[in-house]
Design a protein around this nucleic acid. Structure first.
Lengths: 214, 214
DNA sequence: GCTATGAATTCTGTATACAAAATACTTCAG
DNA sequence: CTGAAGTATTTTGTATACAGAATTCATAGC
């Protein structure tokens, strides 16, 4: 048994994010601290600390006297966050070592079309996409930027479970990823950045198309 | 007496940020929770909640068993954060209503050279700069983006008090702000964005030049 | 039957308590 | 005098306690 040498608040935060991925929490619903703490087998103190962290990531909202609730979702917010991530990843790409980008380009190309199991669970598929973007940013030395990207992406987890499965958008994403990789292979960083921004814009709309109204 | 209808953690956070501006906390030093809580006249519980929020903003670091400490500063991190803010403000500008930008351009121009008292305290001067940038972004409808900018800027407060007073850089900043405003007046948004990025890059170096080594 | 009022309950926000980890201090061997 | 070992102290991380705000439920008046 690996004894956890990490604050409970961090472990709780991770567990809550995992449950968020599974769609356990509906957007807009209140958090009952006592009930959730009991369910997790911890006291309210570290739970509240985790909730405050999640509120800082805009996954939760807090209202005086009314506690925490899961932040409502909206197509507008999703687009907003995607445009932020497009800008941040573009900056990360622009401030990466061109030689390193050229070196990882083949891996990016291969990973783009190396689908996971086509009938895999949504979580697996999303992780595959994350993996690709992580590799893309692996040469960025701006620690604060990578940190920020991670934080902003965490908030996107509220949307993952809302989407219905669909293969076509995944293939388009793979194509766009491959295009970015090829630009990097050519050493054409500006083109890669443009393609990345396009990918985020298209990816946002494809994702939204997979989310039913209301 | 205005009775505060806001969680203590928020009030504590603000008080700590104010003290940070005053340079009360040296980077890298530990936070003694009990002592600080006593000084603020609150218990450790809301204090810790504020500390956790500040850790989320990268103003503090936390280590298991060792509590919180003020995050170390470095020229590299300062440049990293400035480049992030350049990208985020550029995005905000690009996603603003051009008509609104043209409308506020005269105000931006006037505010650029309307110095505060030349011998004013550093805090006043910094606030003047913030005011200009806030006005610049006032037409941005991307709420999440504005939120993110605010959060990232909060972390920059760790650097404000390290700089020695100097008029020349302020004048250059004013010139660059005026240049941005004129581009907006011309309706040339791309040029304004380029000028804004230049302003952030130059501004970062000017600020660093005002910070003594070690 | 519906609204308003008030009591009862639930829940949050803050304070306090306590155990374990980390740090500081003391003592002793070499 | 230096370093190690063991003890005392401090400090954190988590649990519990408690007061007050928010909500719910019941009752009374129209």
């Amino acid at each position: 048994m690996a004894i956890e040498r990490r604050p409970l608040r961090d472990q709780i935060r991770e567990e809550l994010l995992k449950r968020l991925d599974r769609g356990d929490f509906a957007a807009g619903t209140d958090v009952n601290e006592a009930a959730l703490a009991a369910e997790l087998g911890v006291s309210r103190t570290p739970l509240r600390e985790a909730l405050i962290t999640l509120a800082g990531e805009r996954i939760l909202e807090s209202n005086q006297g009314r506690g925490f609730r899961f932040a409502p979702v909206s197509r507008q917010e999703f687009r907003e966050v995607c445009s932020i991530l497009a800008a941040l990843e573009s900056l990360a790409l622009e401030s990466s070592d061109p030689a390193h980008l050229k070196r990882i380009a083949p891996d990016l190309l291969q990973l783009a079309h190396g689908f996971p199991d086509p009938v895999a669970e949504q979580q697996i598929i999303d992780r595959h996409d994350d993996e690709w973007h992580d590799l893309l940013l692996s040469g960025c030395t701006n620690e604060r930027l990578l940190d920020l990207v991670t934080g902003v992406k965490a908030g996107m987890r509220r949307y993952a479970h809302l989407a219905v499965a669909d293969d076509a958008p995944l293939r388009r994403d793979a194509d766009e990823h491959a295009a970015i990789a090829r630009h990097l292979l050519d050493g054409d960083l500006p083109a890669a950045v443009v393609a990345l921004k396009t990918n985020w814009a298209n990816g946002a709309e494809r994702m939204l198309a997979r989310i039913p109204e209301e």
